[in-house]
Amino acid sequence: MSVAAPAASYAFKTTNLTRSFAGFKAVNDVSIEIPRGGVRTIIGPNGAGKTTFFNLLSGLLPPSNGHVFFEERDITDLDPYRRARLGIARSFQITNIFNKLTVYENVRLAVQANYDGKANFFLPTRRMGDLHARTAEILRDIGLFDVSGGLAENLSHGDQRRLEIGLVLARDPQVLLLDEPLAGMSPTETHATVELIQRISPGRTILLVEHDIDVVMSISTTITVMQTGQILAVGTPDEIRANEAVQRAYLGGLA
């Protein structure tokens, strides 16, 4: 151990993290460190507690017990908007965008959130630096620049999922929590989205919950396997593939 306090080596750390729903422990006494950087994927059968774990990290749910740390800081009691300001951004399993607003307004609002509490919101946006330039940049990044005048609800499912990633990117977050970003996508859309995730991953930590096992094996730095609210195994894709406990519990017929 070095003498000087190092910058946190982990993005998230949890200690004895537990969340019960009417006695059922969806996340059960999880103590884990999620290292900085890379694509960290969480897999597990339905009901394993993956989404609940995400909800505890992002603050949607308070834990029943235990703590969540983000880069040495205890964020257990922090409201989601404060976590967002620390650089934690998340997407949801069910697409979560502003349906009745235009694609442009969706992204602009996400970028504008960076100025909440800093700029006077009763004055025109031109005082918010490069708000529009940054919005356009993100729209190009997610490939929706040309359709930005249309309502978000009129986008295809895949485009909506990508729009949500765009919203999540607007704060230039250090950590992204993506909950099944590929769910319901066509092969073409999946390909484009995987490419997008790989493109934005350098310099960031990406936490992924995903069921598409081929994608998981190809883009993950490490894989965490959850089962009945607990961590079953952590390792590189190859290690996980070779892990007998994981094979028994989950991969079974798939691998």
């Binding site: 992002s58 409201d79 951004a89 965008i97 602009r108 909440d116 919101f121 919203l167 607007a170």
Partner: peptide
């Protein structure tokens, strides 16, 4: 605009940092 965001999706606005 933020009010419109709240009307459309309060949870999304919260997770964007509002």
């Amino acid at each position: 605009s933020v009010l419109h965001a709240l009307r459309e999706n309060r949870q999304r606005a919260r997770f964007l940092g509002y």
